[in-house]
Amino acid sequence: MSPWFGFLKKEWTESVKSYKLLLTILIFSVIGILNPFTAKITPALMENFMPEGTVLNLPEPTALDSWLQFYKNFPQMGLFIFILLFSTMMSKELEKGTLVILLTKGLRRSTVITAKFAMGFAYWTLAFLLTFIITYSYTAFYWDQTIVQHVFLAAGCVYVFGLLLFTITLWGNTYFASAYGGLLVTVVAVITLFIIAIFPDSATWNPLQLLTGPPQMLTGDVVPKEMLTPFLVAMGSLLVFLLGTILHFNKKRL
């Protein structure tokens, strides 16, 4: 086993022992079930809560309602929980000093960052696939999905945005070497993207489009082509932050 895989194995063991695997599977399965479920029962709920005699003309829920729930729950609750779970990957080690022994044994500093990034990447993929597959299966079971467009592409946009946010968190976490430092950087980054989004012109390139665009993609109001520039900007920023993390850590005082 090479040092890189050795360290990755350590990351894996750590995530299992600290219940991150269990939490990820549970939380993202629940979100997956919640999406079609909420869409299905909302009309029934509304009828129950209304005073007797009120006539409500709610339309029957469709596959679109289920997917709109997905875009409400997954990027908000889901991404938020994911970032919280993985926001201390570096700071925990830097605060405790557990890396000192391994680094003074000749472990490459870049190995630490790339292995941690790979582990976060794998977990985010797992989280995304769980929620997506469960939502997709239930929606297909209850409704006709032909009315929604670009199901896979739209979900892929949110996935990429989550990856970018995780990389920013990793950078902040390494730079400030504290749990809150990483979160603060992430919050500031998101706020900045929202401020940029105030200017309508920015919609053509702002990575935030990857988060706000997908629901409109389902109805065909946004065409996939419009997502290309935001996607490229997101991937570019992701690489810059990842490289920045590696370069910073290479010269970090421990």
């Binding site: 040092p3 360290f7 022992k17 022994i101 044994k105």
Partner: peptide
């Protein structure tokens, strides 16, 4: 003050170190 990964046993920790030193 040496800090180790608390969930490992001594043997597992040394195995990690051995892998890292090739």
């Amino acid at each position: 003050v040496p800090e180790f990964y608390p969930y490992y046993t001594a043997r597992e920790y040394l195995e990690l170190c051995a892998v890292i030193t090739n």
